[in-house]
Each structure stands twice: as C-alpha cells, then as structure tokens.
Amino acid sequence: MHVTRREWVLAVACWAELLRAQSAEERYVWFDAATAAEIKAMAARIIPEDDTPGAESAGVIWFIDRALAGHDQDKQSLYRSGLAEAQAKRTELFPGSASIASLSVDQQIALLTAIEKAEFFQQVRLHTIMGFLSDPLHGGNRGGVGWKLMGSGHEMHYDPPFGFYDANGSA
C-alpha cells in the first residue's frame, strides 16, 4: 500500500489528537477523589437535578476544584476543617454511616440543614452557585444550563421591547 505524504501527515495529526483527547480527561487539581465525592454530594443537594439540570450537570465540582487551586486558595483550609466538622456531625446524626455521598437524599438534606449556618456550608453554597452561573470558561455552567434556568440571555445585542410591560403600552 502506498501512503502519500499528505495521508501520512493526516494520520499523524489524528493520532496526536487522539492522544491529546485522552490526556485531557478531566482530573482534579486540588481535590482527591474522596473529598470531591463529598463536596459533589453537597452541591447536588444545594442545586439538585430535578425537572431541570442541577449542579451535577453543570459540572460545578470542576469549577470548585479550579477555584480552590487558583483564585480561592485561601479557602482550602476552610474546606479541610469544615468538611471534618461536617463529617463529625454526620456521624452524630447517622451513626455507622460511611460518607456524605452514601447517605440517602433525605439524610443529606437533614445533615446540610444542621450545618447551614456554618461558614463552611455558606462557602460551599456560594461556590456551587458560582459554578452553576458563572461563565463556562471557569469550568462550570456547562452548556449554559445555569443561565437557562435563570432565563437570562447572554446575547451581545438586544432591541426594544425588552419585556412584557414595555411591549404592552406605556404607563
């Protein structure tokens, strides 16, 4: 079989692309897998998947990982200490349970309700909302699912009328 130079170049390019895609499989920068699973479970209760996509579909955990490895490095210790306290509360409420992720949905809600005033919960809540609604370039809000929930457009240009009331008569 004769391989032209052009075919050879193409084949190499395809092979390189395949390698790149494999190595681009998402890996956590700051989280270990066990911690990520716990935070992911919390985020899933804060913005659940129901009739519309939630934190899971939006890839919120990837946003939080990047934030903690980058701009919000100063929150790492809060995540460590806060999660330890949350685990202690879990053991107290549900003796014998193994992890937040392994609790039932109702148990998870009971646990988060018990810690919702804590700084750690407030931080995870804010990070979850940020990961759901920030520009996808930050790692979350995949497919713009957060913006879709809010109904907020991100067009560069709108023309009036903008809403129902300015379209339907003046004051």
Binding site: R45, P48, T52, G54, E116, M130, L133, G146, W147
Partner: peptide, 23 residues
C-alpha cells in the same frame, strides 16, 4: 446579575438552597 441574585437576593424567610429555592 445571576450569581448575586441566586446567592443574596431571595427573601431570607424562604429556603436558600434545594429544589424549592432553585425553582
């Protein structure tokens, strides 16, 4: 803007996370 609205603006006597809040 969306993040600020979702995180801060809802009346404080209503849930601040979970399905009902999200809706």
């Amino acid at each position: 803007y969306p993040i600020a609205f979702a995180s801060d603006a809802m009346p404080k006597d209503t849930p601040q996370w979970g399905s009902e809040w999200k809706r």
